[in-house]
Amino acid sequence: MNDTKILSEYESKKILKKTGILVCREILAQDLYETKKAINELGYPVVIKACMDGLAHKSEQGLVFLNVKSNEETEYVYNLIKNRLPNSKILVQEMINNQREVMVGFLRDNIIGPCVMFGLGGIFTEILRDTTFRLAPIDKFEAMKMVEDIRAKKILTNVRGLPQVDKDSLADLIVKLSQLGAQNTNIIEIDINPICFNKQGMPVAVDSTIIIRD
């Protein structure tokens, strides 16, 4: 993996946006002044994350702070990140309801070639391994089958008062990601995890990492 490069979350999402994937509102800040300015624009509560190339598994390293609600909290979190990673930038994001998290991924397998993956997201990705794969690229019909293929598919319905997930848009997202990965041979891996759902049930990419050949 010497010749690979892990793109920052911000860079990864810029690529997703260009592909037409809905990404959460976010602003990249250099310093505390810009961080506060970004919060003014987005409004509390926000999510504050460390953001730099080469940085993966931010949550596990304690570099993601959800539901930040005040200037006091902001300053505290800002200093924590800067103390740990002085070169890191600060990514400020709107807080999206994260009661339901799914994930979509792309990988270039040594034997099989480009593959796309859909599954349960967040911490459950690793615990439950409720995922399904296809050889990429795929069409909408296949993506719809993937959406129906996970054991926890009921989570996508209007359970416990949550809005019904827009499966059509979710399938569109899977198709777009499968095409993005399959068409760009320098992309080795894409991870969009978690994907949450807005009030209309539309899937929104909340975190993402793209690994490319350098």
């Binding site: 034997i111 099989i112 593959c115 995922t131 794969f133 296809r134 296949e142």
Partner: peptide
Amino acid sequence: SLSAKDELYDGLFKQ
């Protein structure tokens, strides 16, 4: 034979 992970073949079969 060079094999691949089970879940990838599982996907191939479904596809």
